[in-house]
Write a protein that binds this DNA or RNA. Structure first.
Lengths: 343, 343
DNA sequence: GCGTGGCCGGAAAGCGCTTTCCAGCGCTGC
DNA sequence: GCAGCGCTGGAAAGCGCTTTCCGGCCACGC
């Protein structure tokens, strides 16, 4: 088996031209080749089923057609939406997407970046969330530097890294707007199911939410932290219930967490929104059909992926660009009016 | 900027050894190198921040560390779960996953395979569903042949392609078991929201379901075809309602379609399960918290991805292996007893 | 004491492609 | 009529690595 691969040399020989000519025909260099030879080469290439060896090209050109995409968990709809945006843009540009998953371990992010560097990836989109841990931050920054030094470009989604292009969702503003909208529904006592304390995204959303409450002259919320996952939301909600909090409305910093929280409430016989209103963040498409429909802050996730890919693919100047995308509050059935509203 | 990349040659020179020795140290060849030199090389490599050029390695070794993964839509939880399984196994094996999305266009699948071939990918997992269209089948088969000829391995999920390893979920058996289980709830008139007629997966599930009904002595279901997506389910359900079918239970061949269908029913004021029972297929984890909880046939999606990756990564013999994974009927709240059950 | 292996280092030949450089040729312009 | 230019084709030098092959060294055995 394993009929050896057709090489450019074979095509050239078969077509009776030099290696150089064949190469020029088959990849559109700046140089012209007469139509006759060009035709001949094209035809023989076709006939022999020639496929260029991407590694050899990458080596000779010193640049590959790989684009990295680093996410925590491709199963999480948040990331898969972003991934969809990134792949669409990359594929249109004729590039190939390398998917790396970190499982939320910072060191894995560094490893992946290093691997991507080994492959001379042209660019990489970091979609994971930034943590506040100093040490891993520093290692990541070093790796990013190495990557850019080598000529690669890096863009981040939602984590402003020094010197990289970034797509920044309005986490803070979204949280704030949501808090106000919920206050307008008459709620006065809030709880928040926050993500891990060290996650910047979670902190921003929480901070915005608190600010919004303050705007409305409402006391700060009870905050229960949990993992940034469905189960995290579930556990945090149970904890909240156990704490006998008197909150009438709970904000889960993520739709996925909100789903977990709703499951917990349901199990405990707490009705949504009658007994408790709940809101999330992200507006995950897959979850739009749930009952009761989840109030949330909509983020254009796929578009964010596209923007990130766009940033990272067109060279751009030297300085880091930042694209802000706004979140839009969407109130649905999971949040009701609080009839008991007092001052 | 762009401090040029550290090469093996530089490391070797700096360490005062030959290129060969440096290479042997830094990638564990069969040959031994004295501890002294080895240490020296390791140290300088570390010091200089040496990262091997993967393209050059791939070229020299004539094999890369890339594994392809082809899906229709990474946003679809079905695929993202499989993707998670594949990436986990691949990353453990020190390989890098290239993600390609087809947008359900068969020709795109062929293109991707060809790109993967150009990159000398070591293996590829095809997770897309097979269609019955002759022409695209043939082109795909040709491309697969070319890929394997070149030494790459191919595995498919749920589509038995000639000569490739395959992970086959029990679509037929699952559909059949589901039909029987629903019949036992007393339902006698069924409808099916089938996927596109040319999708083998959809057909198998439908065929199994029909067989199950036949087992129970029940008349064949009304079948409405729609796209293999949430919207497809939504549309199909509307169409079903418009047809004034008297079905008391509807089977959507996919959980995602079932979600769309439930949305349609809800909009039309049809209660689930009181007025209409509904069941899906796949048991998508993200959808497990929906209300009413969806009855379905559970497939171990991540595991299927892992198995596929495992098949494609360990060489195996020459003949195609097939691993069957069973679906498990899970009845939840979306299917109720049919109290009006007659014969 | 010398022949014979076994080991380890290094030189060098690729891997398949790109790209520079040079040679040849037909034109134009004076 | 010839210098000079622009254009096309080919030879060849890499790109950074792996791996074969060879040569030198040491240890061992007779």
């Amino acid at each position: 088996m394993s009929a050896r691969q057709v090489t450019l040399a074979e095509v050239a020989k078969q077509a009776g031209v030099s290696l150089a000519t064949a190469s020029r025909v088959l990849n559109g260099s700046t140089r012209q080749v007469s139509e006759e030879l060009s035709d001949r080469v094209l035809r023989t290439a076709e006939q022999l089923g020639y496929v260029p060896n991407a590694s050899a090209q990458a080596l000779a050109r010193n640049s590959s057609s790989l684009v990295g995409l680093v996410v925590h968990d491709i199963t999480d709809p948040y990331f898969s939406c972003i991934a969809a945006g990134v792949t669409r843009v990359a594929e249109e540009a004729g590039l190939v997407v390398v998917l790396g998953t970190t499982g939320r371990r910072p060191e894995r992010e560094v490893e992946l970046l290093s691997t991507l560097r080994a492959h001379r990836a042209r660019a990489v989109v970091l979609a994971g969330s930034r943590t506040t841990d100093r040490a891993s931050q520093a290692r990541l920054a070093a790796e990013i530097d190495a990557f850019t030094e080598q000529g690669g470009r890096v863009a981040c989604v939602s984590q402003a890294k020094l010197g990289t292009d970034t797509v920044v969702p309005g986490n803070r503003a979204g949280g704030r707007a949501l808090a106000r909208a919920l206050a307008e529904l008459g709620h006065r006592r809030f709880a928040v199911l926050g993500g891990p304390a060290e996650l910047v995204v979670a902190r921003d959303r929480l901070a915005g939410f608190k600010a919004g409450l303050a705007d409305a002259g409402i006391a700060p919320p009870v905050v229960v932290n949990g993992a940034f996952t469905r189960d995290g939301g579930y556990e945090a909600a149970l904890e909240l219930l156990a704490s006998k909090s008197r909150a009438t409305c709970v904000f889960a910093v993520t739709d996925v967490m909100a789903m977990g929280a709703m499951a917990a409430l349901r199990e405990r016989g707490v009705r949504v929104p009658e007994d408790m209103s709940i809101a999330g963040f992200d507006d995950i498409p897959t979850l739009r059909d749930t009952v009761p429909a989840l109030s949330t802050v909509r983020l254009p996730l796929e578009e964010m992926g596209e923007i990130a890919a766009g940033l990272v693919l067109d060279a751009g100047g030297d300085e880091a660009r930042t694209v802000r995308v706004a979140g839009e509050v969407v109130l649905r059935a999971s949040t009701g009016h609080n009839i008991l509203a007092t001052t």
